[in-house]
Design a protein around this nucleic acid. Structure first.
Length: 463
DNA sequence: TTTTGAGTTGTTCGA
DNA sequence: GTCGAACAACTCAAA
C-alpha cells in the first residue's frame, strides 16, 4: 500500500480553491485529511468562547463534504505538535502538506512539527494560501518591507496579475482522496465549549451565500461601507479568518469587476495582506508599539472606565451601541472599531493592548495581524503616517456615520425615544422625553471629550 | 546623494 | 454654515 500524503487543515477550512490541498491531491499519492483541535490554543480560550461553535460547524461541514467523496476527515483533540508527527508515523506517511500561517505562535509550532517529522524522514510542505502576496513577495526597491500602506498597495497592484488570482481546482483531482473511515469527531461539549446560538453560520456553504449576497452590493461599497446601520460591507471577515472562503476568489472578483466600489473593497483586502506581512517582518508588534518613540507611553489605565467601555456604558451612545453589538453578536462594524478604539486610547487613556485583548476575546473574526494593526493604527503607535493628534470626536463621528441614530437605537433601546438631534449626545439635550432621566435610564458621559483630548495630546507630545 | 512628494478612515479654530 | 489653516514635523519611498 502506498504511503499516503496527509493534508493538515488549519485556517483553511474548505476544499474548493485550497492551495495546499490541491498540491497534495495533485502529487499522485492518496491523500488523507486531518484537523486538530489544538489544546495549546483551546486552553487559552474561555469555555464561553463563541468562535468554537463556528469552527466546530465548519469542521463538521468539511467532514461531511469529504465523506460525500467517499473519504473522511480525522478530527483530533490534543497538542498538534504531538499529534501530527504521531499520525504521520502511524499512517506511514511520507509527506505532510498544509497551508502557511504567519503568526508567531503558528510559525513556532510548524517549525517544531517540521523538526520532529524530519527526524522520521518525513517532509512538511507548506503552501501560500491565505494571502495573495506573502512575506517577501512585495518589497520596496531597496528590498525592505513596506511600512506605509499606500506605497505597499501600489507595489501590490503593480505585481498583481492573473497568475496570482488563479484558483486551485481541487475537484479536478478529488479522486486522489483516500477512501477510508475516520473515528468519530469530538462534540463541541467534549471539547469543553458551548453552542454560541448566534445566527452566524460556519462552513464554506455559508461563506458562498454571503459572498453571493455581497456581489451586487460591491459597486456601492465605497459609499455605504461607513454606515453601520446600512448593509454596506461584505461580512466575510470571519470566513476569511477561518478560510471557509478563498482570498483569491474574492480578490479575483474585485479585480475583474472594477469600478470604484470594487477597487475600494480590493484595497481592504490589500490591507489584510499588508498587516500579515508586517506581522511576519516585525513580530514584536504583538506586544510592543511599532513606533519606537511610543514604547514607553504611560497610560492611566482606569479599570472602572475600562469596564464601562467593555460593557457599553460610557455615556457616549455610538461607543456604547458599538460595544453592545460586539458583546451580543461577536461582530463590530469597521467604522465603529475605529471609533471605540480611538475612544479607549485617546479619551479614556487606556493602553491599546487592553482594547486589543478585549477584541481578541470577543470578535468572531479576530485575526492577530489585522487586530493588532488596527489597534496600533488607532492608538497612533503603529504604521500610520498621520500624527497622534488625529483624535476621533465620538459625537461628530456619530452624527456623520449614524445620522438618524438608527444604529444607536438598535442597540440602545433605552434611547429610542430621543430625537435625531439629541441621540448622539443626550447630555446636551435641551429637553428629554417624558420619564427619561439621564444618569438613571442611560449613563451620563464618564469623561468629557474636550478635556480628555487635551490629556491625550499631552501624553503623546511628552515623548 | 539629495530632493521631492506624500502619507486610510480627523478635529478644531477663527475668519 | 463654510472654508482653510493649524495641529508638527517626520519618515518613507522613489526619482
Amino acid at each position: 500500500m502506498p504511503c499516503p500524503t496527509i493534508f493538515w487543515f488549519r485556517r483553511d477550512l474548505r476544499i474548493n480553491d485550497n492551495a495546499g490541498l490541491f498540491h497534495a491531491l495533485k502529487s499522485g499519492s492518496k491523500v488523507r485529511c486531518v484537523f486538530v483541535f489544538d489544546t495549546e490554543i483551546l486552553d487559552q480560550l474561555a469555555p464561553s468562547d463563541r468562535r468554537m461553535d463556528f469552527i466546530w460547524q465548519s469542521v463538521f461541514a468539511l467532514r461531511q463534504e469529504l465523506q460525500q467523496h467517499g473519504s473522511d476527515l480525522h478530527v483530533a483533540h490534543g497538542k498538534a505538535r504531538h499529534i501530527i508527527p504521531a499520525l504521520a508515523h502511524e499512517w506511514s506517511a511520507n509527506t505532510i502538506i498544509a497551508n502557511r500561517d504567519y503568526e508567531p505562535a503558528a510559525l513556532a509550532r510548524d517549525a517544531e512539527v517540521a523538526k520532529q517529522l524530519q527526524q522520521q524522514g518525513i517532509t512538511l510542505l507548506l503552501y501560500k494560501d491565505q494571502v495573495i502576496f506573502e512575506t517577501d513577495e512585495v518589497l520596496s526597491v531597496s528590498h525592505r518591507p513596506y511600512t506605509v500602506f499606500t506605497p505597499y498597495k501600489n507595489a501590490w497592484l503593480k505585481k498583481l496579475n492573473p497568475f496570482y488570482l488563479q484558483s486551485y481546482p481541487s475537484q479536478n483531482y478529488i479522486q486522489q482522496l483516500e477512501h477510508w473511515q475516520a473515528p468519530p469527531s469530538p462534540t463541541l461539549e467534549a471539547l469543553g465549549f458551548a453552542p454560541a446560538n448566534l445566527p452566524l453560520q460556519g462552513g464554506s456553504q455559508a461563506a458562498v451565500q454571503l459572498f453571493a449576497d455581497f456581489m451586487p452590493r460591491v459597486e456601492h461599497y465605497k459609499r455605504w461601507r461607513d454606515f453601520p446601520a446600512t448593509k454596506g460591507v461584505s461580512y466575510l471577515s470571519v470566513h476569511l479568518r477561518f478560510g471557509t472562503i478563498s482570498i483569491r476568489q474574492l480578490a479575483q472578483f474585485a479585480w475583474q469587476q472594477g469600478g470604484e466600489g470594487a477597487e475600494c473593497w480590493l484595497g481592504e483586502l490589500i490591507w489584510r495582506d499588508f498587516y500579515q506581512q508586517l506581522l511576519w517582518h516585525f513580530p514584536f508588534v504583538v506586544d510592543r508599539s511599532f513606533k519606537e518613540e511610543y514604547r514607553e507611553l504611560v497610560f492611566a489605565n482606569n479599570e472602572a472606565w475600562f469596564a464601562a467601555w467593555q460593557q457599553g456604558r460610557t455615556g457616549y451612545p455610538i461607543v456604547d451601541a458599538a460595544m453592545r453589538q460586539l458583546n451580543q453578536s461577536g461582530y463590530m462594524h469597521n467604522r465603529l472599531r475605529m471609533i471605540v478604539a480611538s475612544f479607549l486610547v485617546k479619551d479614556l487613556l487606556i493602553d491599546w493592548r487592553w482594547g486589543e485583548a478585549y477584541f481578541a476575546e470577543k470578535l468572531m473574526d479576530f485575526d492577530l495581524a489585522a487586530n493588532n494593526g488596527g489597534w496600533q493604527w488607532a492608538a497612533s503607535t503603529g504604521c500610520d503616517a498621520q500624527p497622534y493628534f488625529r483624535i476621533f470626536n465620538p459625537v461628530t463621528q456619530s452624527e456623520k456615520f449614524d445620522p438618524d441614530g438608527k444604529f444607536i437605537r438598535r442597540y440602545l433601546p433605552e434611547l429610542a425615544q430621543l430625537t435625531i438631534k439629541d441621540i448622539h449626545a443626550p447630555w446636551l439635550a435641551k429637553s428629554l422625553p417624558m420619564g427619561f432621566q439621564l444618569g438613571r435610564d442611560y449613563p451620563a458621559p464618564i469623561v468629557e471629550h474636550a478635556t480628555q483630548r487635551q490629556y491625550a495630546l499631552a501624553l503623546f507630545k511628552k515623548q
